[in-house]
Amino acid sequence: MSDFTRDEIHRLALLARLEFTDEQADAFAQQLTQILHYVETLNGLDTTGVEPTSHALALHSVMRDDEPRPSLSNAEALANAPEQEAGCFRVPPIIQEL
């Protein structure tokens, strides 16, 4: 594994919807490189034929009957909204004219 570069941090930040200054990106590149080198100790372990565990319990999907139940009112659902209008969440433009 190669070390993280500043550009890779910026590319990854875009995927994660985060922004960093070049200085912050350099610090993250150094720290994440160090952490990744550490987790790469796993590569020394033979896991051929081992099933992955994504969950500690052997769980099966659980379904309930699809029946209407009481839920939050419109006002309750909007109570924490940063901005609202006409009973809806208000956000900046999603599709913009070029």
Partner: peptide, 19 residues
Amino acid sequence: GAHYGYRAAGTRNIIEMYS
């Protein structure tokens, strides 16, 4: 930043609002 919690002020489009 859309439904609850902190939203940065004065963003011009939705991606900028998220980031």
